[in-house]
Simulated scan of single mutants.
Amino acid sequence: MKGRDPGAENAPAHKLPVWGEVLVGVLTVLTLLFFSALALDSAGQGLELFETAVRLGPICAATIAWLGVSPTMRNNREQDLLKEWHSNLRWATELCARENSQQVALGIAILDSLDDLPFHGEGENTLIDAVIVAVALQYDQTEEGSES
Rank of each mutant, 00 (worst) to 15 (best):
L106E: 15
L56A: 08
L127C: 11
L81V: 04
L16K: 12
L32S: 08
P58Q: 08
L23Q: 13
L30P: 00
L106R: 15
R77E: 12
A109H: 10
C96E: 11
L95G: 01
P6V: 02
N100R: 08
G25S: 15
L47W: 03
L82M: 13
W85T: 02
T72M: 11
K83S: 12
I110A: 03
E84I: 07
P6D: 13
N88F: 00
S87Y: 02
S70Q: 14
L81Y: 07
C60P: 00
T31E: 13
V26S: 09
A130L: 11
G107P: 00
S70P: 00
L38S: 06
L117G: 06
S87N: 07
G3Y: 10
G121E: 08
L27S: 03
V24Y: 06
L82N: 04
L49N: 14
E51I: 12
H120V: 05
I110F: 01
P58W: 12
I64K: 09
A136Q: 13
G57D: 08
T28Q: 04
A130N: 13
A8S: 13
F119R: 01
S146K: 05
V26C: 03
A65D: 09
E21K: 14
L81R: 11
W85L: 09
G46P: 04
Q79M: 05
G123W: 05
W19M: 10
L23C: 06
C60H: 04
D80T: 08
P12L: 11
V69K: 06
N100K: 06
G145K: 11
N75K: 13
A65W: 06
L40F: 13
W91P: 00
P6E: 11
D116K: 15
I108Q: 09
G68Y: 07
E144P: 00
A13R: 12
E48V: 08
W66L: 14
A43D: 07
N75Y: 03
G7N: 14
H86F: 12
N76F: 04
A105H: 09
N88T: 05
G68L: 09
Q103H: 07
L89V: 06
R98Y: 03
E51S: 06
E84Y: 03
T142V: 04
N10F: 10
W19C: 07
N100C: 04
R77D: 07
